[in-house]
Amino acid sequence: MLTLTCPVCGAEGDETDFHAGGQAHIRRPATHDPEHITDQQQADYLFTRINPKGLHFERWRCDRGCGKWFHAARDTVSLEFKAYYGITELPPAEIMAQAKGAWADYFKARQRAEAKAPAKAGAKS
């Protein structure tokens, strides 16, 4: 059984007190560039998922506490939670550095993009 801690209200509980919300950091491409979205991009947004054997980044909701969504880094083999962080945030740098494969590519691209144009305060991730 998974045990979690909500980074927003600090509530602790098991997986029945929280709601698993699937992969984190998915951006809807049509929000940013509605005119040039291909069918494949839209299909990827809806269905293609990063499905790593190891470190994974997810959304969870604190069902029986504050009700807020938050992010968590979890290992899909050991089932251990590595970090909790806010819904608008990126993972802690040391956890991000451990990401492999598609997640590593994602964070690199994200950091490159933000170095070019710093994200507006409160921008949704």
């Binding site: 698993a20 997810e58 899909t76």
Partner: peptide, 13 residues
């Protein structure tokens, strides 16, 4: 289970 898992161990709930 509702979350991704490669451990071949499911949750008790």
């Amino acid at each position: 289970d509702s979350y991704n898992n490669y451990s071949q161990r499911g949750s008790f709930p």
